[in-house]
Amino acid sequence: MIRVEGLTHAFDGVPALRDVALQVPTGGTLGLIGPGGAGKSLVLKALCGLLRPDAGRIWLDDDEVTALGERALMRVRAKIGMVFQNYALFDYLTVGENIGFPLTRLGDASAADIAAKVALRLAQVHLPGIEARFPGELSGGMKKRVCVARATVHDPPFLLCDDPTAGLDPVTTNRIFGLLKALQAEHGATLLIVSHEVAALAPLCDRFVMLRAGQVVFDGPPDQAHTAEDPEVRAFVGQAPVFAEAGA
């Protein structure tokens, strides 16, 4: 399970995260929503230890991420699959090498095993047989699916997705969300998704957490967000016109 307590961070004195707390039970799915610049990506970076927060504690199962050194973090990161916002595919490696990368660096699997696993994942993301192509030759939706394949190739118990459907059409969006859910079902991974696609996201999630200006403004089941007290939360999930509330 994922547990975050009192997460606080500032850049050059400008607060970016303020006392953020959230929890995802093992096998659960959390949707982290909120307007741009609210600090959603920062929470994900802190979860992997890519960002050292000023204050607060983070646990992934029994590992306290915020207390570990870089070397111990490498072991914890091996348990995380991360889908990056900007794809982050290595543009000098082929698609096959990209997806196989976690297996070559994290374990001692044989080349044949890796190839088989890569082929399996590519088939699961409906892109069979494109191992030899380079990321630069793919469309945005294909890159995202390759990203999902790379993030899940080593069957990580934690799957973190930073805006996995940004800039994609609704059909591809639903396909990617479906894919994440299917891969989660395969291994019972704990899933945390950052997204703006509130409507498409809601059916997947056990719980929504909404951030605004670095603070948690809502934490509860998706259907309760429609009736939240905070008008901006209601507006964000599509229940109230934003502009009418702006002056209030």
């Binding site: 970076k45 890519l50 091996a78 991360m82 990056f84 916002q85 982050a88 290595f90 990368f101 976690p102």
Partner: peptide
Amino acid sequence: MVVTEQVDALRMNNAP
């Protein structure tokens, strides 16, 4: 590689 998060992806996969 840094600004396109590829370096973060490296750090996630035991490739300092």
